[in-house]
Design a protein around this nucleic acid. Structure first.
Length: 550
RNA sequence: GCGCCGAUAGCUCAGCGGAUAGAGCGCAGCCCUGCGGAGGCUGAGGCCGAGGGUUCGAAUCCCUCUCGGCGUACCA
């Protein structure tokens, strides 16, 4: 990446100046290369002289002049200028810019790839919604975020595994089992009340109905305490099936569906507790077994095993993370949770550390919850309340591409009001269609020029301001990928996609591609092909389709 | 109470230490007898929640406050 090259070039220039005594031997601050905002500030800029001024006890402009004199510019850079109050502005050479078009065409769908990961293994665990109900619109946000992040990391040279953690153990399952049982019995006219903290949602009746259809009334003859888990098991399977279908429609495939129950079956949960005990982090108090998380920065201790002998969700989660980090040995594990699990973060970090792992190997991403707005009213979401809008409804109403684009575009930190009516009303002017249209347009041009071989197109003919602007915009993709991978934040991608689409449309409006001028035609076709590849790569990272025609 | 997150154009949101604060939608104009007008161009519209501080420089960092979301269980 040219950005890294400029960083190195500046570093060497400072070093040389220090060696020659033109600059004092102070510690050099991090060299940041940024994209200047205004016109006329070049393609890249650095404020390094400003940052050095204080400790060097020299005027920023003087430092800038010294660095500029010492710097050895790569061929890509046509000029470097010093600008008040102490910026260094780089201008890219248009010959080099044109050359990048060839590079992009050669890279094709691979364009944008950077090697940050060096093949290190990263696991992204996301969605992981309880299989006690359908996915909600809120889960859709975690789904879009997680999958896009996985795509970005993969593009950035990591070996990525996508995992869905199925919470099919614990006392919420008891509540679920009892709920399905009640609806099942009621279906056949029996009088069994929904359990006290059961699931009131209508979908439980749908599940019970489905089981009644496939299995008949056979569970009525089974003692209740045996029938409940059997019915619950069938219910979970049905719901997981639906969850897979929803995710599939969003273009999300998990490499692994990891069942919490398997940890109990293999004795991993008690093993984890014993592991913590051996490490000296377990204490018995009030009849329960506690994890001493307060000694590791959490503000309170946490129960691992209740006084009734039943392990908490936290205990199995400890075992789960031991499995991820210790047994499967991922170099990095990224958990993506909704804001309602935010309180779980400090103890999870603490338990990972207590088990002897470097806590930096675990990153927990929290995304703020989604408020669904319908008829101007916020719909409170939650499977326990039975009041929620399903992902399915949103998918049916707005379509998967718009859902993904919209969900990925928001910073995870920002709470989000998803107005269904608005999303529907806006769907025909949705930014995603604007970007997809740009891609289809490149497809249309190339189809029209099928019989023209533009392989030897001369890129030095691309000199219109809109052509150069488009090339510059395409060159940003690898930087965006690198930044997104580093920050674990894919949300700049949709914004970039829009800018790229605008650059294409502007070019299209100013420059006719297919003309009598064979040479210009070939050069521009090559530019269009490069843009098509860049758009497709960007859309792929977001997880939406890149249609050939619309 | 304490902790985490948010507050930027009429609306939905980017920007999160740099040079005149951006985009989409909406609004007001303009551009088609040429490759897909689901397009392009121009304009109006901002005490960047409030107040202090740090810095050559703050929407961006620190402190206080206001409002909103979430968390603060032997729930998950």
């Amino acid at each position: 990446m040219i950005r890294d090259e400029l960083r190195q070039v500046l570093g060497r220039a400072v070093e040389a100046a220090q060696k020659d005594g033109e600059l004092p031997a102070i510690a050099v601050p991090d060299i940041l290369i940024e994209r200047p905002s205004g016109e006329g500030h070049g393609d890249y800029a650095s404020s390094l002289p400003l940052k050095m001024a204080r400790s060097a006890r020299m005027a920023p402009m003087t430092i800038a002049g010294i660095i500029a004199a010492k710097v050895e510019l790569p061929a890509a850079v046509a000029g470097l200028e010093v600008a008040a109050p102490g910026f260094l502005n780089f201008h890219l050479a248009s010959a080099w810019l044109g050359d990048q078009v060839d590079q992009i065409v050669a890279a094709g769908p691979d364009y944008g790839r950077v090697d940050l990961g060096g093949g290190r293994r990263v696991q992204v665990e996301f969605v992981s919604a309880n299989p006690t109900g359908p996915l909600t619109a809120g889960n859709g946000r975690g789904a879009a975020l997680g999958d896009s992040l996985a795509r970005v990391l993969s593009k950035a040279g990591y070996q990525v595994q996508r995992e869905y953690y199925v919470n099919d153990a614990g006392n919420q399952m008891d509540a679920f089992n009892g709920s399905v049982y009640a609806r099942y019995v009621q279906r056949f006219g029996g009088a069994v009340e929904l359990p006290e903290n059961g699931y009131p949602g209508d979908y439980i009746q749908t599940v019970a109905e489905a089981i009644a259809t496939s299995h008949g009334r056979q569970f009525l003859d089974v003692p209740a305490e045996e029938a409940k888990p059997m019915l619950g098991r069938l219910g979970v399977d049905l719901l997981l099936q639906q969850i897979r279908i929803d995710l599939d429609q969003l273009g999300i495939r998990f490499d692994e569906w990891f069942h919490e129950e398997s940890l109990f079956e293999a004795g991993k949960v008690s093993a984890a507790v014993e592991h913590l005990r051996a490490a000296g982090y377990v204490l018995e108090r009030e009849g329960a077994t506690w994890f001493a998380s307060s000694t590791l920065g959490d503000d309170r201790d946490n129960v691992l095993i209740r006084s009734n002998g039943v392990p908490t969700y936290f205990a199995s989660d400890a075992a789960y993370h031991q499995n991820k980090l210790g047994e499967r040995k991922f170099d990095k594990v990224i958990d993506i949770w909704g804001a309602d699990h935010q309180g779980h973060v400090p103890r999870m970090k603490a338990v990972v550390e207590a088990m002897g792992f470097d806590p930096a190997r675990l990153a927990v991403l929290i995304y703020q919850l989604v408020n669904l707005v319908r008829d101007g009213q916020v719909v409170r979401m939650g499977k326990r309340t039975g009041q929620f809008v399903t992902l399915r409804e949103v998918l049916d109403e707005v379509g998967p591409d718009a859902v993904r684009f919209f969900m990925v575009a928001r910073s995870p930190d920002a709470m989000m009001d998803f107005d269904l009516d608005l999303a529907k009303a806006q769907s025909d002017v949705n930014p995603v269609y604007y970007v997809q249209y740009a891609h289809a347009r490149t497809g249309g041009i190339l189809r029209r020029a099928e019989n023209i071989d533009f392989g030897d197109g001369d890129v030095t003919l691309l000199i219109d301001s809109s052509e150069l602007a488009l090339i510059r915009k395409m060159l940003e993709l690898p930087e965006i990928v690198a930044d997104a991978a580093q920050a674990l934040a894919p949300h700049p991608l949709p914004h970039y996609a829009q800018e790229l689409a605008t650059a294409l449309h502007t070019f299209y409006d100013r420059c006719r591609v297919i003309t009598e001028d064979a040479e210009t035609t070939k050069a521009r076709l090559k530019l269009v092909a490069a843009c098509k590849a860049t758009l497709a790569a960007t859309l792929d990272l977001i997880g939406v389709g890149a249609p050939e025609q619309m």
